[in-house]
Design a protein around this nucleic acid. Sequence first.
DNA 1: ATAATCAATAAGTATGAATTATCAAATAGA
DNA 2: TCTATTTGATAATTCATACTTATTGATTAT
Lengths: 295, 295
Amino acid sequence: MNYQIELRHFIYFLAVAEELHYRKAAEKLFISQPGLSTQIKQMEEILGTQLFVRDKKKVSLTPAGEFLKKEVEFILNHLDQTKKQVKLIGDGQLGEVRIGFLGSAMQNVVPNLLLGLKEKYPTVHTTLEELSNRAQINAILADRLDLGFVRLSRVPKGLDVKPVFEDTFSLVLPEGHPLDAKHFKNINQVANEDFILFSQDYSPMYYDTVLSICEDSGFVPNVSHKSVHAQTIFKLVENKLGIAIVPTTLQHGFQMKVKFIEMKKIKQRAVLSMVWKTDNRNPALQKCMDLLQKL
Amino acid sequence: MNYQIELRHFIYFLAVAEELHYRKAAEKLFISQPGLSTQIKQMEEILGTQLFVRDKKKVSLTPAGEFLKKEVEFILNHLDQTKKQVKLIGDGQLGEVRIGFLGSAMQNVVPNLLLGLKEKYPTVHTTLEELSNRAQINAILADRLDLGFVRLSRVPKGLDVKPVFEDTFSLVLPEGHPLDAKHFKNINQVANEDFILFSQDYSPMYYDTVLSICEDSGFVPNVSHKSVHAQTIFKLVENKLGIAIVPTTLQHGFQMKVKFIEMKKIKQRAVLSMVWKTDNRNPALQKCMDLLQKL
DNA sequence: ATAATCAATAAGTATGAATTATCAAATAGA
DNA sequence: TCTATTTGATAATTCATACTTATTGATTAT
């Protein structure tokens, strides 16, 4: 009496609606004809409407049945799609990865990741957001982000980090500056210049590293300006308001009147790491990390 | 092992996905917690994907589960809509009636039906087609039409007829004709005129009736022209090519230089009947016929 | 007439969705 | 640290019901 419609009913209904013949429909479904009859009847009771007209020797659909047929076709179809997609998402073949990154990661790591995804897992999509180290960490902790690209060595408990790209540092000088790569020996050649650096709390690790580079050469830099954007830093250098030390990859992608001197000999490296929540189960994230191993 | 997803699974899944708590979800569903657990587990097996992460003390959705949740919400919603609509169609509250009619039915019967439908069953829609008696009968037999308005007394086996409107006949005379309503006594006053009638095979019953009217007055009409359109007949009368005898309702709806003399005293009536297939199960048709009873 | 074919009905079976009872793991409170 | 409480998962059992086979009644075909 108080039954509930099930997908079984729909499948049975569709078979009868297609065959318009109970025995044939039952054969197709590999069940017995009486079983099919009772199930259809039950379905009609649940819906409170006749779906088939069983007239002398012929079965036909009522208008309500005709309508239901279309709907059932749609629903079963949609369901099939859904099942496939759920499986794909579960296998990490399909899904969304929410990625945060520092601007400097956009020079090579993030584009390479996106190209790799497009090639190997074209159905894995991404949302991208340029964020500071801190903002990324917070977003990952709050489950608003799956993957971050940061310049940090230590991260809060519950997160994992892994270096994905090591970069040298470069001196950034205004185009007309007397020093050039040929005559560059050591950073203390510019020890008396004003320095323009990324803000300490935008990227503490970078800041510390730059300070340690100078320290290694025996001086404390005079930091005249700080900024969170490479664009701004370069603009200030261009206007001779100081010189900068930045990860070398930032050489590309900007049209500025500045010159880069890559400091290969100094031991410090600008390390870009990926960060993710240890217990993140997004399978598409696994695919991303697999790809990043190979980059 | 070889189970099949059922709607039950979806309903259970949604409860857990909403509560993120098996016991609470089970309570909401009025089933036991172990039953719910096994059903969800079975569902995961069928789909081949984990849907929930049961971590220490907390339940959460996997990305696949997150995706499925949205889909299940959509599907269950859609299904609910469908169930309601099927019921409405079955009750004839919602649906379509395909109506055929003779031009003369458009004077009052069909418009009144449409107004009645609009008022009482605004969700019952119609398709309308002006057709001859014969064309309507054929269309109804071939299930291309639900309801016809004809002037026939006998219809093929399998169809039912029922009079819906009785009309007197009127003489149609050119405006300048010497006879008028005041001086009209009997049709044999125009026995010597030429007659313009609807074609015999457009409406045999009409034709026979008109002949019997003349016969009762003791003459055989001289039929000079026949047509299937009232418009044409009136135009011919207007041009003094003859006079006509037509159902009185045709008086309205035409702008012609002709005058009508209603012959109330003659016993013959122009009967408009509705026709339908005896075994037509369109519930919206029933609503139409109910309305037509009351007109 | 007889046989054949249809869906519906009746009665019995067996699958599996439910239940209750219990467990193992984790947390919270003392 | 121990206990009490809470979580979801398991195990064993019960019970609902979707199935089966056997049959009927109605209709059509030969």
